[in-house]
Design a protein around this nucleic acid. Structure first.
Length: 536
RNA sequence: GUGGGAAUAGCUCAACUGGCAGAGCACCGGACUGUGGCUCCGACGGUUGCGGGUUCGAUUCCCGUUUCCCACCCCA
């Protein structure tokens, strides 16, 4: 049996009704705050995420669904061919277009290794080139005495760019003229989050010229993580971004406060009361750099007493030490400097203002000096909403300010912004108890009885549906009893009998399935009658 | 990616030290051919996740594998 792939799942009724409920509420709240919907592609150039989210983040370094297009096996697919003299001919036999000219310039004797790489539109992967260099070095030292040349062959259109990147250590870059019809590969990635895509669209379509600076999105995202409760490989996010030139007010603390107040409103409206808003300021890029230095220094003398995870974090990402849950480490953590002491004047004032405005708006919050965000682009305000009873994945929503992101992605002018993303899967999980409320019921079951009644019933059902009712239609071949059972099972409020007597009288037997009350209702009054009763 | 637990009918779960794979609910049919729910009767439903091993015999024991769950890493 073919099953849904790992980490993905089908959403089935009645749960889908709950998803629609959540999305409908979100749209309504967003509209009240003048946000408009944007839909960006589900995949983007890999480079967008590498630059926007950060090359060193876990997301980009190991959790993305990345694939290449444009590869044609007739061209050069190989990333590497190891060439020694006996194998030289073997490669020629591969008859890849254009190989002849590469080898023409080389004498067999002095070729040690030829590496052929294809360079996609996204540019060469630095990591891949570095890895090849390291391999080459170990091969060369293993083979010691042999004279060698190391040749990197790339499509000629990329030759100059690549040699600029790798022109060192005796590596030769040769351009290979690609044949007619060569389609350079692109590296594409299923979006792991939506902020980068929104900012890309903002820049691409010059949305500032259209006064569009409040945007929201709802849709699937993809991360190749190990599945866990509330954590899927295709997951859904509801998010919004306020972005624009500073003159539009996008940098002002009131935007931060407004956004947080909107989220508070949305969660309450969804019936979630048991949540906590944590906020912090992670400062601007300079503040963060200074703080990171200080943190590393402070950790140096004490890290030896901490758990293995913390020792690793101290090197790779010192901020993460604050996430440590080992009880023995907590006293040490308590002595570490907090970022608030390293905030510049501007960041400090901004954060103070956000807090003052939140109080003004009556939004409850807690400052959590240890709250840090994982993505590179966050600056200043960072926040998250947590909810109990969700296990280890207790954050249902997170976000923050990203003042430098637009420039990083090539915006001609600064466009500070702030946004959030709600984990819809987790939000729905938190709402599961209320699932029944969101399920829409069936208004009426139309039951044809007797010869030729199917046609009449079909028309009548169509009329009622056009009047806005939810209608299910039976079939004359069922016995009436069957249809009653079906109507009851489907949760219909009424059953409507369409038989010869009814057609003659143009008045139909309408039975309330809850009360058992049955009356004859003229055709013209049917929809009205059903709706009335139904709204009681 | 790491560690632990689990997988048996559509669902929830049984099956003792290894001995015919079962129940409740759901679904379908009937009792009842223009009146449901309740009741009763009947039928359907399975490669026990998959693959291998041990054994006369494996749902049960062993190995591998896949998926899910819990946690770690990390984090919208």
């Amino acid at each position: 049996m073919i099953k849904a792939v790992r980490g993905t799942r089908d959403l089935l009724p009645p749960e889908t009704a709950l998803w629609n409920f959540v999305e409908t509420q979100a749209r309504e709240v967003f509209r009240a705050y003048n946000f408009q919907e944007i839909r960006t592609p589900i995949f983007e150039a890999t480079e967008l995420f590498a630059r926007g989210v950060g090359e060193e983040t876990d997301i980009v370094s190991k959790e993305m669904y990345t694939f290449r297009t444009g590869d044609d096996p007739r061209w050069v697919l190989a990333t590497k061919w190891l060439v020694t003299r006996p194998k030289y001919k073997k490669i020629e036999q591969l008859r890849r277009p254009g190989f002849g000219q590469v080898f023409a310039g080389l004498r067999e004797d002095d070729v040690w290794e030829i590496v052929i790489v294809e360079i996609g539109a996204g540019g060469p992967k630095l990591a891949a080139l570095k890895k090849m260099q390291a391999e080459r070095q170990s091969l060369a030292s293993a083979a010691g005495e042999r004279p060698s040349r190391y040749v990197l062959v790339v499509p000629s259109s990329e030759a100059q760019r690549v040699s600029g990147l790798i022109n060192q250590d005796g590596i030769e870059v040769q351009g290979l003229e690609m044949p007619e019809g060569y389609d350079p590969p692109e590296s594409l990635t299923l979006r792991p989050e939506n902020t980068a895509g929104v900012v890309r669209a903002y820049i691409e379509h010059k949305l500032w010229d259209r006064g569009l600076n409040k945007l929201y999105y709802i849709g699937p995202q993809f991360r190749r993580e190990r599945p866990q409760k509330g954590r899927y490989r295709q997951f859904y996010q509801i998010g919004a971004e306020v972005i624009g030139p500073s003159s539009s007010g996008s940098e002002h603390p009131i935007r931060d406060a407004e956004l947080l107040e909107m989220l508070d409103t949305l969660l309450r409206r969804l019936g979630i009361a048991d949540f906590t808003l944590y906020i912090n300021s992670v400062g601007d890029a300079q503040d963060r750099a200074a703080y990171n230095d200080a943190l590393r220094k402070a950790l140096q003398p004490v890290v030896g007493q901490m758990c293995a995870d913390c020792q690793r974090r101290a090197v790779t990402n010192p901020l993460r030490v604050f996430d440590c849950k080992v009880p023995e480490d907590q006293p040490v953590i308590a002595t570490l400097p907090v970022i608030s002491s390293y905030l510049g004047e501007a960041s400090r004032e901004h954060f103070q203002n956000v807090q003052a405005l939140l109080k003004e708006a009556g939004v409850a919050f807690e400052v959590n000096p240890r709250l840090v965000r994982g993505l590179d682009y966050y600056t200043r305000t960072a926040f998250e909403f947590t909810h109990g009873a969700l296990g280890a994945q207790n954050a249902i929503l997170g976000g923050g300010r990203y003042d430098g992101l637009a420039e990083l992605l090539g915006s001609p002018q600064p466009a500070p912004g702030i946004g959030f993303a709600i984990g819809e899967d987790r939000l729905v999980m938190a709402l599961q108890a209320r699932a029944s409320e969101a399920t829409a019921g069936l208004d009426v079951y139309v039951a044809p009885v007797g010869e030729g009644m199917n046609r009449k019933a079909l028309r009548l059902a169509g009329d009622l549906r056009r009047e806005g009712l939810t209608v299910e239609l039976g079939d004359r071949s069922f016995r009436l009893k069957k249809m009653f059972e079906a109507a009851t099972k489907a949760g219909a409020k009424y059953i409507l009998i369409v038989g010869e007597n009814e057609i003659k009288a143009d008045s139909f037997s309408l039975k309330n399935l809850a009360t058992g009350e049955q009356v004859s209702v003229p055709r013209a009054e049917l929809a009205q009658r059903i709706r009335e009763q139904h709204s009681r």
